[in-house]
Amino acid sequence: MSRVQVDRERCVGSGVCESLAPEVFEIDDDGVLQVHREEPAADELDGVQDAVQSCPARALALAE
């Protein structure tokens, strides 16, 4: 099972992940990233992988 990891020191809330996998990622009112499902469903994995690669702050990772 793949698990989403967020480096909170690096995240600046750019919302790029939210645009690619909105069902998994959301920037909240305080500009902080909320991960709705730390273990994304199989059909969400493509979007999450895209988000990990596209994160401008390189704050995301997917651990096995």
């Binding site: 600046v12 809330g13 750019s14 919302g15 939210e18 645009s19 909105p22 959301e26 920037i27 909240d28 009112d29 305080d30 500009g31 902080v32």
Partner: peptide, 9 residues
């Protein structure tokens, strides 16, 4: 972060 939310998709 103060304005981050406003500029999210």
């Amino acid at each position: 972060r103060i304005v981050a939310k406003t500029f999210t998709p």
